[in-house]
Simulated scan of single mutants.
Amino acid sequence: MLPSFYTTMAFKDKISDLLEEALKEKPSLFLVDLTVTETFKVIVTLDGDNGVNLQDCIDISRAVDNNLDREEQDYALEVASAGVSTPLKMVRQYRKNIGRTLKVKTATETIEALLEQVSDESITLSWTAREPKKIGKGKETVEHKREIPYSDIKEAIVTIIFN
């Protein structure tokens, strides 16, 4: 076998450049994660403002694969969409999920609530809860709304509710 032409970092930079070019052709898609292992397994995770379909993955895979030479560096390439259970990482992902229910973990609590607003610094969640009445016995429904800075979010996942 030929010695590795690339270091892992140089190879990752090359892949990153190729992805950037390929994604210019599909502006509704964006890169969520790029991993290159020590054995040159390339894992590309995509998301899209309108979702990601199989053809999108094929097109991006071909754009990368057609511009690399396996004689220079043997590699394995995997292009996939961010799954439903994949934690949100980018503001753009939060924006496309406004109106959906998220499960958000912070250092002190887990909140399952409706994503109402997204800014460059934070998200706003709203939910109702049954809580003991302030006066008297029994419970009442209380509306909650909270702004959470991205820096406080440990993990946020879209939850799917089946009726």
Results as ranks from 00 to 15, higher is better:
2 L>N: 13
4 S>K: 13
4 S>M: 08
5 F>W: 11
6 Y>M: 06
8 T>K: 15
8 T>Y: 00
9 M>R: 14
12 K>A: 14
15 I>K: 04
16 S>D: 15
17 D>R: 13
19 L>A: 03
19 L>H: 02
22 A>W: 01
26 K>P: 00
28 S>E: 13
28 S>F: 12
29 L>C: 02
29 L>R: 03
30 F>I: 03
31 L>C: 11
32 V>I: 14
34 L>C: 06
35 T>A: 15
36 V>D: 04
37 T>E: 06
42 V>P: 01
44 V>Y: 04
46 L>P: 05
48 G>M: 08
51 G>C: 12
54 L>N: 08
54 L>H: 10
54 L>V: 13
54 L>Q: 09
56 D>E: 07
57 C>V: 00
58 I>L: 14
58 I>V: 15
59 D>H: 06
61 S>I: 04
62 R>G: 03
69 D>T: 03
71 E>F: 10
74 D>S: 13
83 G>I: 09
83 G>P: 07
84 V>G: 10
86 T>G: 02
91 V>G: 01
91 V>R: 07
92 R>S: 14
92 R>W: 01
95 R>W: 03
95 R>T: 09
95 R>M: 11
96 K>D: 03
96 K>V: 04
98 I>G: 04
98 I>V: 15
98 I>L: 11
99 G>Q: 10
100 R>S: 14
100 R>E: 12
103 K>H: 07
103 K>Y: 01
103 K>W: 01
108 T>F: 09
113 A>E: 02
113 A>D: 03
115 L>S: 03
115 L>R: 03
115 L>D: 01
116 E>I: 04
117 Q>F: 03
119 S>M: 05
120 D>S: 14
121 E>F: 06
122 S>P: 00
128 T>A: 07
129 A>W: 00
131 E>F: 02
133 K>E: 05
134 K>E: 15
135 I>V: 14
136 G>L: 05
137 K>T: 08
137 K>N: 11
138 G>S: 08
138 G>R: 09
139 K>F: 13
143 E>V: 08
144 H>G: 02
145 K>M: 09
146 R>K: 14
152 D>I: 00
154 K>T: 12
155 E>T: 14
157 I>Q: 01
157 I>L: 01
159 T>A: 02
